[in-house]
Design a protein around this nucleic acid. Sequence first.
DNA 1: ACATTATAGTGTATGACGCACACTATTGTA
DNA 2: TACAATAGTGTGCGTCATACACTATAATGT
Lengths: 119, 119
Amino acid sequence: MNEQEHIDKLMLELRRGTITIGVLSQLSSPQYGYSLVTMLNEKGVPVEPGTLYPLLRRLEKQGLLESSWDTNEARPRKYYVLSEMGKAVYEQLCKEWEGIVRSLDDLIHTRKDEENGDD
Amino acid sequence: MNEQEHIDKLMLELRRGTITIGVLSQLSSPQYGYSLVTMLNEKGVPVEPGTLYPLLRRLEKQGLLESSWDTNEARPRKYYVLSEMGKAVYEQLCKEWEGIVRSLDDLIHTRKDEENGDD
DNA sequence: ACATTATAGTGTATGACGCACACTATTGTA
DNA sequence: TACAATAGTGTGCGTCATACACTATAATGT
């Protein structure tokens, strides 16, 4: 396994959960799956259809999203939108996410020197 | 499932991979597992011994870490430190991590209105 | 001095869950 | 006819939390 393969694998894990936040962040107004895949990929959050569709259904089953079919268009589209609980969870999740980012940022820019080292 | 349970579960996923970065970030100089558990928890990256030890062994097997026993102390300690490849991977991973953070930050502070924003 | 408990330190086994990947299926459009 | 739009399923992998096992030392109590 070379460097790039390691990085790819680690990135895979790092992305975990971020897809969910990305999805939730876009569903304050209704959108359908196919458009979400496209948009998220454009915005730098790579996601596969085979990942997104199950995710959407999962989130709906858990009560974070609500869905409705639009059959007026050329092809039927399934629109998802945040439920009340979804909104609340999303708000809170953002705060927690920022906490994680801050902690990790802290570790990365290692401040070993300002430990006020008493040896 | 109430709000808090949802958040806990989502947080669990969000933390994925961040533990690895946290560990790598601390191993430019050698440290042993037990001290890492303590330190990371202090620094806001909660991690269980049962998570860290397998992680360290995994990273060593993959060639990102090197280990050596110190049997001079009261109890034997297994010290880990970044290998050359580990350093390279860590450097690159940090950049990628910042990319993820930036993308997600972008999505969270939804700029729906300024869709025409070409810098 | 001896027994008991706590702590430092490393390790394993199991189960859950989300993700990528490879697929299927339908319908409209060029 | 072939391609794009749109939604879906099934499998395998990897990491995480949890619970547990193990050893040797330090600390405590009697």
